[in-house]
């Protein structure tokens, strides 16, 4: 009798324990144990720091199951939507599958369209069945070995392909190949998506500022259409695209059509030097400062060279925008 009870108790305990699935193994959490403590106890290597929910060193991603709200305290809306959580503050009431890094998906897909956007930027459209958020980026491979990151200019539910804007970088290992040699019909390998710079539905009335330099327009073109078309964003949206010279700017017709369709969108093109009447000659920082003198309550998206993103982020923050409301994607040149 007592052995039966024992057996029942064991069985019951096993069933009620919260199991954490991680790296092809399972860890049953003990009473009051956090996901971090459970994984560490089981001998897994998970980075961590304060264990108090502040330092965010132990950020993990939930790939299956529900994340308790207190485990996402202080994370951005984008991080929450991606299922990121802090393992030290996570006491789940049910089982979860967790991962250290978002599982990357590799896809082989054909190029279906290639068009010139400026003198050194091409647009590639690839028929890839990828699940992503507009504004994220993918890695494009050459010969399966060399890869570079490119932002997605396309939008799920609007475009049935993924779109990349590729600037030819002289001496680069990938872009001259993509620019010169890649043709419609060729198959390419991509991996992703990655990145946290995308629209998160929440306050449809929130004013938004999207600004970028050069091909920084690619993710912004995706984000702005995602907000307007997929999420019916109602608040005013300012899109400001800049470059050194006006002939480096593109998508004039597409953005004109978009702002005609959506009166809450206004688009500005600015360049340090302009020979195009549609492009204002101005310093983009000054231009944005005058356009949005008070950034309080704004949602901001910044895309482009790292120096631009850094400087603009500081400017927007000092103008009153909450840090959590500034999403940025800095284009970093590759080391090798």
């Amino acid at each position: 009798m007592s052995s039966t009870n024992n057996w029942l108790a064991k069985l019951f305990a096993k069933k009620s324990a919260n199991t954490i699935r991680f790296a092809d193994s399972e860890v049953a959490l003990q009473d009051g144990e956090s996901v971090l403590d459970g994984l560490l106890r089981a001998g897994h290597s998970v980075p961590y720091g304060c264990r108090g929910g502040s330092c965010q060193s132990c950020m993990m991603q939930c790939t299956d199951g529900d994340v308790p709200p207190q485990a996402q305290q202080g994370l951005t809306a984008a991080q929450q939507e991606l299922g990121y959580f802090l393992a030290c503050s996570c006491h789940p009431s049910e089982s979860m599958s967790v991962a250290l890094k978002p599982a990357a998906e590799k896809i082989i897909a054909p190029v279906i369209d290639k068009a010139q956007l400026t003198a050194n930027v091409v647009r590639l459209r690839i028929k890839a069945p990828l699940n992503y958020r507009a504004g994220q980026f993918i890695n494009l491979f050459r010969n399966g070995a060399v890869s570079r990151s490119y932002s997605l200019a396309s939008v799920v539910g609007v475009d049935d392909y993924i779109e990349l804007h590729i600037k030819r970088v002289e001496g680069g290992k990938l872009s001259p190949w993509a620019y010169d040699d890649l043709s419609v019909g060729d198959e390419v390998a991509i991996e992703g998506p990655n990145g946290q710079c995308f629209y998160t539905p929440g306050d449809a009335q929130q004013p938004m500022l999207l600004t970028g330099l050069g091909t920084g327009l690619a993710p912004l073109y995706g984000i702005v259409r995602d907000a307007l078309v997929n999420h019916q964003h109602q608040g005013p949206i300012q899109l400001v695209v800049g470059s050194k010279h006006s002939d480096q700017l593109y998508l004039f017709d597409e953005l004109k059509a978009l702002s005609d369709n959506y009166p809450n969108l206004s688009v500005s093109f600015v360049a340090q030097q302009s020979t195009n009447p549609a492009v204002t000659e101005a310093d983009i920082y000054q231009y944005c400062k005058e356009l949005v003198p008070d950034g309080k309550g704004y949602k901001v998206f910044l895309c482009g060279a790292e120096s631009f993103v850094k400087k603009m982020k500081k400017q927007c923050f000092l103008a009153g925008t909450n840090m959590a409301d500034i999403a940025a994607d800095a284009f970093v040149p590759s080391g090798s």
Binding site: C50, G52, S54, Q56, K310, K313, M323
Partner: peptide
């Protein structure tokens, strides 16, 4: 890095 700094200031 402003975001990293923000996290530290929060701590």
């Amino acid at each position: 890095d402003m975001e990293a700094q923000h996290v530290k200031q929060k701590a």
